[in-house]
Every structure is written in structure tokens, then in C-alpha cells.
């Protein structure tokens, strides 16, 4: 059997000289084309796990293999080349507020450009065409020249998706993509992610807070508690008892429809 697309081996992250353990010996693997949902309480290590993959956060110990390459050992130049095939979507969108939607979308191409071209903002015609296409795909072609901070939350997150699409990614990391959005907008954003997963064959890792969204969109769920992997299985396997185990006894499930 061929090796899995993404593999974590004893991944450990410790902050503040050992005082806070964010991830403890996390090992699992992800096959190509999966929609993996990561659940867990705030502070359980979901964001840290995602950020270790593209090394926005340096892991303290352990290995992460992306397509067979141990990214924890890469030099910064080679890491950049890996990063450009890994899209990322953030809870607070992380757009450049003062720039236009188009510039924000185009910034997804920066990993593919030479230093001087990116410095002068010389995006190629093909890139610009692609940007408009991707904006049209998320339904924002009529907002291309608006400033990013003039958009609503849901629209901003869709710009985030367009930016990730520009990277032509193999892997998409989404860190609580809908926590800042209302339920209706949440579903629209999640459907774009689902579309990327099913139509473009992008492997998606998404941390989510709502179990109903996790069940609806995920093909597989893992749960973190206190930095440790405590569940790994299909969405249907999470029942009342498992839920209480992950979120604590006092938790009630909240539905998002």
C-alpha cells in the first residue's frame, strides 16, 4: 500500500519553556481527498496542530510528512515551496483590510512569483484572469475593486477562499472558518470548502466547533483534548457519551441548521 498523503508522528508542541503543552505525542495520518474535521474545546491544540503543518508554528518534537516529505526538517526556502501548495483559511479571515479584494485574492500567487515581481506588484495577466475567475466562483466578481474591509464577514471569508484557490492547493487548512459567522453564512462557506474537496480533489483539514457541521461535512473526525488525540473515526461514531467525553460533562450539543 502506498504511504498516506499526510502523516503526523509524535507531534509535540510546548510553549513557554515547558509550562504549556499544546500538543502531546499526536500521531495519525490522512489520506488524499479526505475532509478531516478536528474538534475539541478552545485551547485543546486544534490551531496549533494546523499551524504546525505549514510551520507558522515550529513544532517542538515529532515529524509531519506531507506527500512523503518531512516538513519539520525543511529549510525556509524549501518550506516556502511546500507552503504554496497548502492553502489556509483563518477564523478572522486575515485579509489585508486596506487593499482591494482583487489584490487580496492575487496575494495567493505570491509564493509562485519572483521577489522583484512581487515587490513591484507585477502580477501576470493570467494571474489576474484567474483571480477574477476565482472571485466569480465564490460569487464576488462584482466586488473585485471594493476594499476588503467594506465587505461583510461572510464575503470576507469568501475572499479568503478565493485567495486559497489562487494557490491551486493540494491541501487546505481551515482554522475555525465559520466561528465568526452566522449560521446561514456558515453553511455557504462550508459548501465552498466541500466543493473544493469534492471537485478539485483538495484534501481539507478543518477545525470546527459545531458538531452538527462536523457531521454534515466531514468524512472523518478527530478530537483533541488537552493536546492529546482522544478520538479518531467516522462522524456517525460520535454519540452522546463520546461527545461528553470530548467536551466535558456539562456540555450540551448545539445544532446549526
Amino acid at each position: 500500500m502506498s504511504q498516506p498523503y499526510l502523516r503526523f508522528e509524535n507531534l509535540t508542541k510546548v510553549y513557554e519553556r515547558g509550562q504549556v503543552v499544546a500538543l502531546k505525542n499526536v500521531s495519525f495520518s490522512v489520506e488524499k481527498g479526505e475532509f478531516l474535521v478536528i474538534i475539541g474545546l478552545s485551547g485543546s491544540g486544534k490551531s496549533t496542530l494546523l499551524r504546525c503543518i505549514n510551520r507558522l508554528i515550529e513544532p517542538s518534537a515529532g515529524q509531519i510528512f506531507v506527500d512523503g516529505v518531512d516538513v519539520t526538517q525543511l529549510s525556509s526556502a524549501r518550506m516556502r515551496r511546500v507552503r504554496r501548495k497548502i492553502g489556509m483559511i483563518f477564523q478572522h479571515f486575515n485579509l489585508i483590510n486596506r487593499s482591494t479584494v482583487l489584490t487580496n485574492t492575487l496575494s495567493g500567487r505570491l509564493g509562485y512569483m519572483s521577489a522583484w515581481r512581487s515587490l513591484l506588484g507585477l502580477f501576470t495577466k493570467e494571474d489576474k484572469k484567474l483571480a477574477i475567475q476565482n472571485l466569480a466562483r465564490v460569487g464576488l466578481e462584482d466586488k473585485a475593486y471594493a476594499r476588503a474591509d467594506e465587505l461583510s464577514g461572510g464575503q470576507q471569508q469568501r475572499v479568503g477562499i478565493a485567495r486559497a484557490l489562487m494557490q491551486n492547493p493540494d491541501l487546505l487548512l481551515t482554522d475555525e472558518p465559520v466561528s465568526a459567522l452566522d449560521p446561514a453564512t456558515s453553511h455557504s462557506v462550508m459548501q465552498y470548502l466541500e466543493q473544493m474537496n469534492q471537485e478539485d480533489g483538495v484534501t481539507v483539514l478543518a477545525s470546527l466547533h459545531f458538531l452538527s457541521l462536523a457531521r454534515r461535512y466531514g468524512t472523518r473526525i478527530i478530537a483533541l483534548k488537552g493536546g492529546e488525540l482522544m478520538f479518531d473515526g467516522s462522524p456517525s461514531e460520535i454519540d452522546e457519551a463520546k461527545f461528553k467525553e470530548i467536551y466535558g460533562d456539562e456540555a450540551e450539543e448545539v445544532e446549526v441548521r
Binding site: 496575494s107 500567487r109 521577489a115 512581487s118 479568503g160
Partner: peptide, 20 residues
């Protein structure tokens, strides 16, 4: 946030400075 986002796209240090 924007610094993180541009770094994540694979942009160089100069790109982060220029765009984020």
C-alpha cells in the same frame, strides 16, 4: 493576521513586508 496569511501562501519575507 495578514502576516500569517501571506506567510502561509508561501510568500517571501519581502512579500510579507510589501503585502501584509
Amino acid at each position: 493576521g495578514p502576516v500569517e496569511a501571506i506567510t502561509a501562501t508561501g510568500g517571501s519575507w519581502l512579500s510579507v513586508l510589501r503585502y501584509a
